[in-house]
């Protein structure tokens, strides 16, 4: 017979460590397998470079890698910012007017069925090889997740709260700013987190098609020189940067929602 006892209260950091070690363990196993398989089959370094080689070469080539990473990071961030602007405008319009909702929302969903990767060459033809087409493509890739989150969030506003403010004589704008927008913030961040995970990938895809600098260019160059270790390195850097951006959004989310009841809080005074 087992008795389920409530876990003892833990401090914040020890709980974070407790949350961190399972994925860290899995990661260690994967890296170990990577190194082990490479050693076992005596893989050539241009097919499967070992983790140690990847880290070493990437570090040696950092003077080339950093500017590339910085270019792509800028494209990803500006793309996300553009996506936020587009998503906010669309979501508020969709939320405010039934006509807009009926005419725009289906098109917005349909826009996601476009093969956006296939659009990349077109965007380059229109906007050239600079950063603009990359930003446009990142925005195109990511606005949808943000917009859908916002539309749902705005619609999730509590009917009772809305009615209450109406009885106080609130205007539509006041209702939007004081009830609907605050209600939408949690789902906005959910959408934003999804968008962030797409952002680097879409910037890199745009760079594959044509660019002067960036991680996409770096990977193409490394591949053409059979420097598989550097391709791996660029992939790793992309993953780390995406995680970093994700972490920043998580922090912003916490700052934007100070009123949210912490999940660990129990009871009331």
């Amino acid at each position: 017979m087992s008795v389920i006892a409530a876990p003892p209260p833990r401090r914040r950091w020890s709980r974070r460590l407790a949350n961190a070690w399972p994925p860290a363990l899995v990661l260690a196993v994967v890296v170990g397998l990577w190194a082990g398989v490479g050693a076992l089959v005596h893989a050539a370094s241009d097919v499967l470079p070992g983790p140690d080689l990847v880290v070493r070469s990437t570090w040696q080539d950092r003077s080339n890698l950093w500017p590339a990473a910085w270019t792509t990071t800028r494209e990803a961030i500006f793309g996300i910012l553009a996506a936020i602007v587009v998503a906010v405008v669309l979501a508020v319009a969709i939320d405010s007017s039934r006509t807009v909702r009926r005419s725009i929302y289906p098109l917005m969903v349909a826009s996601q069925t476009l093969p956006i990767i296939a659009l990349a060459p077109l965007v380059v033809i229109w906007f050239g090889f600079g950063p603009l087409p990359k930003i446009a493509l990142v925005a195109l890739f990511t606005f949808f997740a943000i917009a859908v989150g916002l539309v749902q969030g705005l619609a999730s506003a509590d009917v009772d709260a809305t009615n209450l403010l109406r009885t106080m004589g609130a205007s539509r704008l006041q209702l939007l700013l004081r009830v609907r927008v605050p209600s939408a913030i949690p789902q906005f961040f959910t959408g934003l987190k999804v968008a962030v995970t797409y952002s680097f990938v879409s910037a890199i895809v745009a760079e594959f098609v044509g660019a002067q600098q960036g991680l996409g260019v770096y990977m193409t160059t490394a591949k053409n020189a059979f420097r598989t270790d550097l391709v791996f390195g660029a992939v790793l850097v992309t993953a780390i940067l995406t995680l970093l951006l994700f972490a920043i959004v998580t922090v912003l989310e916490r700052l934007a929602l100070p009123w949210r009841r912490p999940a660990s809080a129990t009871g009331t005074p």
Partner: peptide
């Protein structure tokens, strides 16, 4: 609207306001 002060059944406190 705006004439009487209405207190709804559930308290209607906005969670994002102190």
């Amino acid at each position: 609207l705006g004439v009487c002060a209405f207190m709804p059944q559930r308290d209607g406190l906005l969670p994002w306001r102190r």
